[in-house]
Design a protein around this nucleic acid. Sequence first.
DNA 1: GAATAAAAATGAACAATGTTCAAAATAAAG
DNA 2: CTTTATTTTGAACATTGTTCATTTTTATTC
Lengths: 221, 221
Amino acid sequence: MFKIKVVKTVTGKREEKKEVLRQALVKAAGHRISKLGLGGLRARDIAKDAGCALGSLYTVFTDIDELILHVNSNTLSKLGVVMEAAARRVDSPQDVLVALANEYLKFATENRNIWAALFDHRIPEGAGEPEWHVAEHLVLMRGITIPLARLLPTLNENQLAVQARILFAAVHGIVSIGLHGHFVAVPRRDLESQLTQFIKRIIVGYQSSSNKVDNIDLENE
Amino acid sequence: MFKIKVVKTVTGKREEKKEVLRQALVKAAGHRISKLGLGGLRARDIAKDAGCALGSLYTVFTDIDELILHVNSNTLSKLGVVMEAAARRVDSPQDVLVALANEYLKFATENRNIWAALFDHRIPEGAGEPEWHVAEHLVLMRGITIPLARLLPTLNENQLAVQARILFAAVHGIVSIGLHGHFVAVPRRDLESQLTQFIKRIIVGYQSSSNKVDNIDLENE
DNA sequence: GAATAAAAATGAACAATGTTCAAAATAAAG
DNA sequence: CTTTATTTTGAACATTGTTCATTTTTATTC
């Protein structure tokens, strides 16, 4: 049993403080978004909430967008946890898909603004979001792929990945438009049962022999 | 004494000019959004493109959001036209639904920014969008309801309306996430066939006797 | 047609907000 | 404790939506 001496600086006060500040800023931004939505976010407010000067924000993040990115990263992490927990509560692949969809609806309903920020946030101009953050969105796929593989045993990995994205996108669309008021919304109390019914229909479609998955080559995407 | 102004303005030059300016502003804003997206819209640019002073914009619209609203109104109108045309090109309700979905994908692909503005635009604070504009979104439903009624003959009008919204939302989600880069996207050339397959599966689900539409009371929404 | 009144167009000024930077404060090293 | 390096600070800057006093245009009256 040896101790590795990682101690170069005895205190390491600088990095420690910076990390504390980073967390405080992400937390403050998260609270603001939760309360007021992405549109209600102000650099000055975040700094005040986090107890630092306006300029300090820019010593930790290059701009507000990067800060929002980290808030979204946290949200995806939380979402991943509840989705995986939901998947574990049932057994059959059918039930898992239904449970995942309803858990997604539940999370979106109970965390409206912070969830909406995941999809409302737009990177300003040229370069898109960093690779690591794009990859984080895959937590939304992971839970879906496993039950899907059991329902569609003839698909290879790439084909499964595509089907998972399509199914997630459909569910996301229903939840998104269901909660947003673009249309006369589906009554909130019906949304859950409609979503369940929708998933069941898709599953029936998967199992229909007259409607097998096309054998399109998806290898080289 | 009071004079009643029984004026019949012979020329009506004022309203005419105002209408011309209104059109010019909407057109200019539309072009900017098409090229640069909602985020690239600047009041000063719009005014310059429309050939008026910055302040004139605010004599026609109360703010930029109202102008965007009118751009979106135009977009919905165009979308409605192509969707109805697409529906008329085929016969069976199955084919109509497939055609509508693919037409929607096509429109979104070919008019990315102006289409995205329909859903990206957020009204700033309290009061939501005006009633007349919310109602315009129903053009997206109209084409769907007719074939759906033939596939689901037991549903009443309200239930059909709900199913149409659910189906549209699912398609919209697939198109939206398919075109956006949140995830490693489904390859664009596969999106159309995936969408077609998806619609066919849903239709199979509709027709499955083991999965009838729940008899939830949807009357009082 | 000229004079007058009403309305609209104008663009400078204002306010809000993201970002930068020279100066002050703080931490690390000697 | 002194010196040096780094960080924090908040005033200043740049951009952008919106307003408003002034100017210009349009309509009405004689």
